[in-house]
Simulated assay, not measured.
Amino acid sequence: MNIEEAVQKYQTYYCLDCGVCTGSCPVSRVQPTFSPRLIVEKAMLELGDELLHDRELWSCLTCSRCYERCPTNINFPEFMRVLREEATKAGTTPVLAHHGMLQTIMELQTQGIHQKKTGWAHEAGKVTDKGDTFFFVGCMPYFDVIFRDIGVDSLTISRQVIKILNKAGIVPVVSDEEACCGHDMLWNGKPEVFRKLARRNVDLIRQSGAKRVVFNCPEGYYTFKHHYPEHVGELGFEVIQFYDFVERLVADGALKLSNGSGTYTFHDPCRLGRMARIFEGPRNILKKVANSHFVEMERNRENAVCCGTSGWANCSSGSKQIQVERLREARATGADTLITACPKCQIHLSCALSNIDLDLKIKDLTALIAETMEG
């Protein structure tokens, strides 16, 4: 899809030039040279060559805050995604974080490398190779290795998902052959790599006999739910967000949460909140934790602020400003613990917290559920 086709598909010609997108954008606040409105304007003026070589294409967090507030409902994140595909063809690419290590892993997975990344799962609880419920682990085993130095133990979260599923009487399928969902490749201008990863995962899940797939990661859930059908067709299985599942267990009394302590506030991940429209489930879970108190940050739900970077690319000083501002907003509520519901949010915010003096803890929601569930 070229720029002209993208303009037609996402109807950017409805832009009122009102500037609400730029005024809503967290990047524009810390990086005045970035403006969603200006990018739309360049596309409308058919400044294709200039636009596709504009480094600002990669500054966008694709957090959807502009889309949330646009009076003419222009889906700027999806428009930006298509522009990045065209920019990549023209030779413009993002600055990759962590030396491009994670992108390299994704590229290797498309080549059918043999992985041994689920030994931990057998230690965590009961898992199987065939069954009705597939637990999509995603990139957590790789995150666990790469980000251990900032105190983020990603695999403990995956272990706790298995523990909670087992508590509900479910023995999930976990597979060494699972690949990354492809989210980062799709948003960083490489749809062909994304499609290879998607086909591999869909084939694997079908072969397992699973009728439903549970996702702890919001990016994996959103990608399977919204982008997989578009690129690989009908999936043939149900896509379930883990916190929706847990909320039902808690509401039915099948899972009781106790032994909490302190005051919690919640950070809405972009893919879970604005993009998947899952706002209340995590809050309903938090409010059921006994002996604790829940408070909201000033900017929450649809108005929540992104964790500051996306797709393991273009992590800048501006990203750090956004993260630090969010952490201070959390502390201003009086909360002693910031609850996250996305592995990347936990990593990015923990990284920022390690570089400032702020009396605040960061905990993943799954970890809190596992720690407080009775029995």
Rank of each mutant, 00 (worst) to 15 (best):
C21F: 15
R199Q: 10
Y221I: 06
A370C: 10
T92E: 10
F279Y: 15
P26Q: 14
L360W: 09
A370V: 00
A335P: 07
K320N: 07
F294C: 06
E298C: 01
W312D: 12
Q111Y: 05
A304D: 08
G375Y: 07
R331E: 14
E68W: 01
I150H: 12
S317F: 10
G23H: 05
G91A: 11
F266L: 11
V295P: 05
F147I: 12
R159C: 12
S316C: 08
F245E: 14
I164D: 05
S258P: 00
F266D: 05
E123M: 08
D149W: 06
E123P: 00
T309S: 15
A121S: 14
E371A: 12
H231I: 01
Y243C: 05
I162Y: 12
R195G: 00
P172E: 12
L57V: 04
G209H: 12
Y14E: 07
G236E: 03
P218G: 13
I339T: 02
Q11L: 09
I240K: 09
L197P: 02
I74P: 04
G209I: 03
C181I: 04
C63K: 10
E329F: 13
S158N: 13
Y264W: 08
M80F: 03
Q103H: 14
E56A: 13
D244V: 01
C60V: 02
D54I: 05
G311E: 13
D176V: 01
L286Q: 03
C181N: 13
A251Q: 15
G125Y: 06
Y13I: 05
H98A: 07
T93W: 09
V324C: 11
R81W: 04
P141D: 06
G19I: 10
I3S: 05
F34N: 09
E280G: 02
V7G: 01
R326E: 05
S261Y: 09
F76E: 01
V82L: 08
T133A: 09
G169F: 09
C15P: 09
G375A: 12
A90G: 02
F194L: 08
F135H: 11
V7L: 07
E329M: 13
L51T: 00
E371I: 01
D54C: 00
S354D: 15
R328T: 02
D49N: 14
V20G: 00
W58Q: 06
V250F: 00
A43Q: 07
S28W: 03
V289M: 01
A43K: 03
H227F: 11
L165D: 10
R199E: 15
Y14T: 04
V161D: 06
V174H: 10
S28D: 06
G151I: 09
Q207P: 03
Y10R: 01
G23Y: 03
A332I: 06
V7N: 10
L272W: 10
I278V: 15
E230D: 09
S64K: 14
R271E: 13
D364I: 04
T88I: 04
L155A: 01
C21M: 08
D336T: 07
K167H: 15
